[in-house]
Simulated assay, not measured.
Amino acid sequence: MKILYFDCFSGISGDMVIGALIDAGGDSDNLVQELKKLNIKNEYELKFDKVIKNGITSTKFDVLLTHEKHEEGHEDNHKHDHDLEEHEHHDHRSYKDIVKLIKAAEFSEEVQSTAINIFKRIGVAEGKIHGVPLDEVHFHEVGAVDSIIDIVGTAILLNQLNIKMIKSSPIPVGSGKIHIDHGVYPVPAPATLEILRGIPIAKSDLSGELATPTGAAIAGELATEFCTIPAMTVESIGYGAGTKSFPNHPNVLRVIIGE
């Protein structure tokens, strides 16, 4: 049975998951083709690069939003912060809209249910924090096109790699403070912490947000156990690069795939 282990020694985010799965042998051309089924391809471009993070060659995956170019004139209203660029200026989509989008795409049953379950986990957490029913949850940070791509893309790649079971290390969340839509919050952000309820969190002295809501939801929804590396014969290893850089710590997610 094919098993995948998320080794989150430097946290986990949606783009790190995609980068690591591609690095471990996922087919990026097939991913690009499959994602076209969502019918939002005029909203984004995808970029895959090889980068070196503290000596480790890894795959960096980026979603470039095409309409950001038209929005530069409206930037003055925002506190512009490089770390916030993914959080700020995308159209808001509700949980209902996102489910409709995924169902209309005619993915395989497995891909569809994986993607919807991950989104539901985020939606339930956001709804609880903001006090609104699931169907009315509007995804500010997560409704962004990049998170739709990250979550649906993860489902596509796991299916393509024929992964039957997923386990994960405990999740380090980082420390310090973060700027989000609603102001300055301690790390982990409220949604991330709610998503990780019932899941082992690892201590980390690194300053910054190591686990994003998308990353937390992927691990939280898909991993059957949070443990050290399980017994397996290792077949492939992938490293997905994050956006941050730390002096003595590679900001990568490692995935280990084996039988």
Score class of each variant (00 low, 15 high):
residue 19 G to I: 04
residue 19 G to T: 03
residue 21 L to I: 05
residue 23 D to W: 09
residue 25 G to D: 05
residue 28 S to E: 15
residue 28 S to D: 13
residue 28 S to F: 15
residue 29 D to P: 00
residue 30 N to F: 15
residue 30 N to P: 02
residue 32 V to Q: 11
residue 32 V to D: 07
residue 32 V to E: 12
residue 33 Q to V: 14
residue 34 E to P: 05
residue 34 E to C: 07
residue 34 E to L: 00
residue 34 E to R: 11
residue 35 L to Y: 02
residue 36 K to T: 13
residue 37 K to R: 15
residue 38 L to P: 08
residue 39 N to M: 09
residue 39 N to Y: 01
residue 41 K to R: 11
residue 42 N to P: 00
residue 43 E to L: 15
residue 44 Y to M: 09
residue 44 Y to P: 05
residue 44 Y to W: 04
residue 46 L to M: 12
residue 46 L to C: 07
residue 46 L to A: 04
residue 47 K to I: 11
residue 48 F to P: 06
residue 49 D to A: 07
residue 51 V to C: 03
residue 53 K to A: 02
residue 54 N to L: 08
residue 56 I to D: 05
residue 56 I to E: 06
residue 57 T to F: 07
residue 60 K to N: 12
residue 60 K to H: 11
residue 61 F to V: 08
residue 61 F to S: 09
residue 62 D to E: 15
residue 62 D to S: 15
residue 64 L to T: 05
residue 64 L to S: 07
residue 65 L to I: 10
residue 66 T to H: 02
residue 66 T to G: 07
residue 66 T to D: 02
residue 66 T to K: 14
residue 67 H to V: 05
residue 68 E to M: 13
residue 69 K to M: 08
residue 71 E to S: 14
residue 71 E to W: 06
residue 72 E to V: 15
residue 72 E to C: 03
residue 72 E to H: 11
residue 73 G to P: 01
residue 73 G to T: 09
residue 74 H to Y: 15
residue 75 E to F: 14
residue 77 N to M: 14
residue 77 N to T: 12
residue 78 H to Y: 15
residue 78 H to N: 08
residue 82 H to C: 08
residue 83 D to I: 11
residue 84 L to Q: 11
residue 87 H to G: 11
residue 89 H to W: 00
residue 90 H to I: 03
residue 90 H to V: 01
residue 90 H to K: 07
residue 93 R to K: 12
residue 93 R to Q: 09
residue 94 S to R: 08
residue 94 S to E: 05
residue 97 D to M: 10
residue 97 D to H: 07
residue 97 D to P: 05
residue 99 V to H: 02
residue 101 L to N: 09
residue 103 K to M: 13
residue 103 K to N: 14
residue 103 K to G: 09
residue 106 E to C: 12
residue 107 F to N: 04
residue 108 S to V: 06
residue 109 E to G: 01
residue 109 E to H: 12
residue 110 E to Q: 12
residue 110 E to A: 08
residue 110 E to H: 12
residue 111 V to W: 08
residue 111 V to L: 08
residue 112 Q to A: 10
residue 115 A to F: 10
residue 116 I to R: 02
residue 116 I to P: 09
residue 117 N to I: 01
residue 117 N to G: 13
residue 119 F to V: 11
residue 120 K to Y: 09
residue 121 R to P: 03
residue 122 I to K: 01
residue 122 I to A: 00
residue 124 V to G: 03
residue 125 A to W: 00
residue 125 A to Y: 04
residue 125 A to C: 08
residue 126 E to W: 03
residue 127 G to E: 00
residue 127 G to F: 02
residue 129 I to V: 13
residue 132 V to D: 00
residue 134 L to G: 06
residue 135 D to C: 01
residue 135 D to G: 10
residue 136 E to C: 06
residue 136 E to V: 03
residue 137 V to Q: 00
residue 137 V to S: 05
residue 137 V to W: 03
residue 140 H to D: 11
residue 141 E to K: 09
residue 143 G to L: 08
residue 145 V to H: 04
residue 145 V to F: 04
residue 146 D to L: 00
residue 147 S to F: 00
residue 151 I to T: 05
residue 153 G to V: 07
residue 153 G to D: 05
residue 154 T to R: 05
residue 154 T to A: 07
residue 155 A to S: 14
residue 155 A to H: 00
residue 155 A to V: 02
